[in-house]
Design a binder for these strands. Sequence first.
DNA 1: GTAAAATGTGAAATCGATTGCAGAACGGAA
DNA 2: TTCCGTTCTGCAATCGATTTCACATTTTAC
Lengths: 342, 342
Amino acid sequence: MSKSTIYQIAEQVGVSPSTVSRALSGNGYCGKRTKMKIIEAAKALNYAPDQAAKMLKTRKTNKIIFAVPDICNPFYFDMINGINQVAEEYGYLLILIYTKHQLSEELKAIQNVKERVADGMIMVSFHFCEENIKAINELSSPVVLTNQFDSPGGGDRFDYVYVDTYAGTKQGTEHLIQQGIERIGFIGGSLSEQTGMQRYAGYRDALLEGGVPYADELVKESDYTEAGGYEVAKRLLSQPDRPQAIVAANDLMAIGVMHACEEAGLSVPLDMAIVGMDNLDISSRVYPKLTSVSLMQEEIGRQAAMILMYRLHGKAMERSAIKIVPSLVVRQSSIWRTGDTK
Amino acid sequence: MSKSTIYQIAEQVGVSPSTVSRALSGNGYCGKRTKMKIIEAAKALNYAPDQAAKMLKTRKTNKIIFAVPDICNPFYFDMINGINQVAEEYGYLLILIYTKHQLSEELKAIQNVKERVADGMIMVSFHFCEENIKAINELSSPVVLTNQFDSPGGGDRFDYVYVDTYAGTKQGTEHLIQQGIERIGFIGGSLSEQTGMQRYAGYRDALLEGGVPYADELVKESDYTEAGGYEVAKRLLSQPDRPQAIVAANDLMAIGVMHACEEAGLSVPLDMAIVGMDNLDISSRVYPKLTSVSLMQEEIGRQAAMILMYRLHGKAMERSAIKIVPSLVVRQSSIWRTGDTK
DNA sequence: GTAAAATGTGAAATCGATTGCAGAACGGAA
DNA sequence: TTCCGTTCTGCAATCGATTTCACATTTTAC
């Protein structure tokens, strides 16, 4: 009942193992009658090819690794999904490695590629440093990196996919400006981090380009949590000349803002229009539904996987740094004037 | 710079490949001086053991497969997380296979185990039938099955982990009864499915045992979606003697109920207490926060992985069917009388 | 009908590690 | 010194498939 090998099939049918291999894999010539007999015998013997042996000989694993910092973060699920779509299409299995934001774990993931556990890897990392860049550059297998910042640099040996968060907050802010709102607040993450800075810059530039006055007191830093957004929003709302709209650097903070409004008796969106970013699952479930900038996670995953597939199939390509443009998903929370709630 | 083998190291150092293997893997004797030289040479040659070769010889892959119907469903992320915790602890990598609720994909996943892509598998399936049970029983590698129903039966060759959803709705209902609420409605999924029936039965039995009258008009079937819950709730709310509380068979429907209440001008929880089930991420973010029965996804994953590890390490065990008891997470939406909103 | 091309098959090498066996070198005890 | 036990090392087989080469057989072409 249990496993068997091509040798046993060969013996059974009375041919050589090589013939069995050819019959079963379809590589090379094989007579029709022999082939039939071999296939039958394989079925009878409950044969299944041993992938380890196959891998050893062919130097292909048909697996790719996705190294992700944080499995618990819903942000990455969509990425996994995007990657998996492509992987499946090309006949690859997906190995998930959870790096916990730790360099040591990232290096372990890289080591796995080096040991040929998989043919290639997609990695999300927030700390590119000499050590992991060097390790990646030494690999002979392709690696695609992604995160929400812009290019890590130093990588002549890997491709890169990233989201333009600057364009994201800019879009969100423009959407508000187009409705004629003039006092627009911003709640960001830390401005000392690159990603926080970019989101802020998008907001600021949208104001400038839109000819809307920029006011320092309408900009607050927070920590990307719901509670953080709530606290900061309370301060914004109690200001003498409170904003009419708020752009939050992520959805969790935006939801915090919504709660603060509710508590202050302000109607969203009529008294206060709100735009978030990340387009979480939750965001379409809160009331009113939250307008949010989608960071296109699934698209990132798909693009990254695509590039990896191109590399794996030897297509010649420049090293690429693909910038994904986020897209604004308009829902009730930001519809201030026009009545077309969708 | 690229890959090298133990043969190259052997040549470099002037010993035999077997010695190199022993030095590097630590199996068997190896002189201290030789070992040092070998390790040095390995480093110099940028050596990494080829896992395919190792797998072929040792018959171990150090990988497990998790076959899951639906990557997009947040329900499974926590399971993945639980599984991964255990897998990592034991030095296994996790391969994710997305079966899309299709039997054919499940069979492919099983085939992967048969071909020794991984040492074992955890699978979530909603349609156990002769075909996949048979395929699993023919495997020589261990498989652990899980879903939300009770035992599939027919499996002398696999272990089983499941959640007692009956106990879940029962707990939720009892929680309401204990607060003195008497007219408690129930919104379930299809009662013709096992899982729907069990959730309903838990509700019904809680009423019976709590001495609270059961009324047919307070029980509605829906489809586990937010929109479905909303629709059905509207009907419940417009009844002459509307319920004071509602138990929903999952959180999405419960959120639909909340929206219906909001629309009808009913305060949650004062006019209407609500309990959901699944304890989604969202549920703690809606307003008011939703009381929900946690189905312990992470715990299921952890338990399933544990059992798999035991099997893989040859520990003798009875075939097990582990029942996980869900736990009620009380939040504002169900606090009717006492003032201790937490 | 014969040459040329296409097809079918087997022997043997190969992928890169692990491991059982046997012999060598070493140590300490008598 | 002799003997025994431990430690070290090499040889060679093995895991299970793929693939090159050579040869045998068939088919096609003219």
